[in-house]
Simulated assay, not measured.
Amino acid sequence: MAWWQWVVDVAGAILILILLYGLALVIRRRVITRNHGTIELSHRVRPSGDGRGWVLGVGRYSGERLEWFRLFSLSPRPKKVWAREALSYDGRRAPLGVEQMSLYPDHVVIVCQSADGEVELALGAASLTGFQSWLEASPPGTDWDR
């Protein structure tokens, strides 16, 4: 076989792998969003002062938990999970500097406190209203003096 035929075969194999990866991402997203309320939710995995460290993802409300899935991962399991009773909302701000290019255009950055420390998330204004409602809608018997 000539060298150019090897190049064409390798290029074809790479193209098929890319298409299969894309198809797997679409199927995974459908499975994640099928039975639960989901939102576009970015998470700052590496807190730093320069606006970097944001990873795009999907958030899913699952009972008393907020689950976060990376957007370009094939894993069916959430990368992060926050329990409602351990999460408190501290405030919001507009994306600054580099964050404006890293996040979706209409998203705002919110700061929450969890058992693991400060958590920064980015979501749309309508999703923020739903998030705040979800936090406040604790089940009966919750300690409101916390």
Rank of each mutant, 00 (worst) to 15 (best):
1 M>V: 06
2 A>T: 14
3 W>D: 14
4 W>I: 09
7 V>S: 07
8 V>G: 02
9 D>A: 15
9 D>I: 10
11 A>N: 04
15 L>K: 08
16 I>C: 10
16 I>V: 15
17 L>D: 06
17 L>N: 08
17 L>S: 13
18 I>V: 13
20 L>K: 07
21 Y>H: 12
22 G>C: 05
23 L>K: 11
24 A>M: 12
25 L>K: 06
26 V>Q: 14
27 I>K: 11
27 I>Y: 10
27 I>C: 05
28 R>Q: 02
30 R>G: 07
31 V>C: 08
32 I>P: 07
32 I>R: 06
32 I>Q: 05
35 N>G: 10
36 H>E: 01
36 H>Q: 10
39 I>M: 15
41 L>Y: 03
41 L>R: 01
45 V>G: 07
45 V>Y: 04
46 R>K: 09
47 P>N: 09
50 D>C: 04
52 R>G: 11
54 W>L: 10
57 G>K: 10
58 V>I: 15
58 V>L: 15
59 G>Q: 04
60 R>W: 04
62 S>P: 00
63 G>E: 13
66 L>I: 02
67 E>F: 00
67 E>S: 01
68 W>C: 04
68 W>T: 02
69 F>I: 02
69 F>D: 00
73 S>Q: 08
74 L>W: 13
81 V>H: 05
82 W>S: 00
82 W>P: 00
82 W>A: 00
83 A>K: 14
83 A>I: 05
83 A>E: 07
86 A>T: 14
87 L>I: 02
87 L>F: 07
88 S>A: 15
89 Y>A: 09
90 D>E: 15
90 D>Q: 15
91 G>I: 06
92 R>S: 14
94 A>P: 00
95 P>G: 09
95 P>S: 08
96 L>D: 13
98 V>W: 06
102 S>C: 05
102 S>H: 12
105 P>Q: 01
110 I>T: 13
113 Q>A: 13
115 A>E: 03
115 A>W: 01
116 D>G: 12
120 E>M: 12
125 A>G: 02
126 A>T: 11
127 S>W: 03
128 L>F: 06
128 L>E: 14
130 G>D: 14
130 G>Q: 13
130 G>E: 14
133 S>R: 11
136 E>N: 12
139 P>S: 10
140 P>C: 02
143 D>G: 03
145 D>I: 03
145 D>V: 04
146 R>H: 07
